[in-house]
Design a protein around this nucleic acid. Structure first.
Lengths: 116, 116
DNA sequence: ATAATCTACAACCGTATGGTTGTAGATACC
DNA sequence: GGTATCTACAACCATACGGTTGTAGATTAT
């Protein structure tokens, strides 16, 4: 599911179909790629249950699957929470004036990024 | 970067090396796969700047790259925020007593779109 | 019926993943 | 020096991605 969200085009599609339904061809017109490519992106999102398709005449209307997107956001928030806790803890340790191992200091805090 | 985080093993590695440094072989011992496989995971995380390696004798100690992880969590939080706003908005619309399409709330059931 | 549109699906290409094994180079230990 | 350990890297495999083109089916409009 994170994999499905790890593509900018797919995230954009999800954002749009969360606001209103769009047919696959309407979505395809928004991106500089073929219809089939967008169709595949929609299929991946559908497989991850992030969007749902609804037939309307000859069109296939795509809409965001609210429940699954909610699950995804919950998972992301959870990961973010866990990591933030760890980061905060490391910040505390580094801020301690008497922590035993100064060599553990941040490898390169940020300013000497001579090497991207 | 989301791609780098879209793998359970890699997320686990990040969690662990955020707490303390681990050599590549120490990490490899934690997972039911070969040393080379874990080495590749670490390489992917390193390419995404999520971890950093530091040489210590014959070992290569892996540690979480706090700044990039922070960026990642910020990005995730941002995505979550955008989507939550959309979701909340849809929730409001669905909660309105006079909105035109009440069947929209449970479009999860797509039994058979049969047509001949 | 014919044409135009929307969709689905298959085949193909180049590349990356996730995994394996094998080999070679450094480093530590005896 | 010899050996064990840690690492790097290459080759290989199966699968999937991201994209293309092409073809066929379904629906709408004329």
């Amino acid at each position: 599911m994170l994999h499905a969200l790890a593509d900018a085009t797919r995230r954009d599609i999800v954002s749009h179909v969360l606001q209103s339904e769009h047919s696959v061809s309407a979505l395809a017109r928004r991106y500089p790629m073929s219809f089939a490519a967008v169709q595949k992106h929609v299929a991946i999102l559908e497989r991850a249950d992030l969007v749902t398709k609804r037939r309307h005449g000859r069109e296939q209307l795509v809409s965001g699957n609210i429940a699954t997107v909610r699950d995804a956001t919950a998972l992301l928030a959870q990961l973010e929470e866990i990591w933030r806790a760890r980061i905060d803890r490391m910040g505390e340790i580094l801020a301690e004036p008497n922590h035993p191992n100064p060599t553990k200091e941040n490898q390169h805090d940020r300013e000497e990024c001579h090497q991207g």
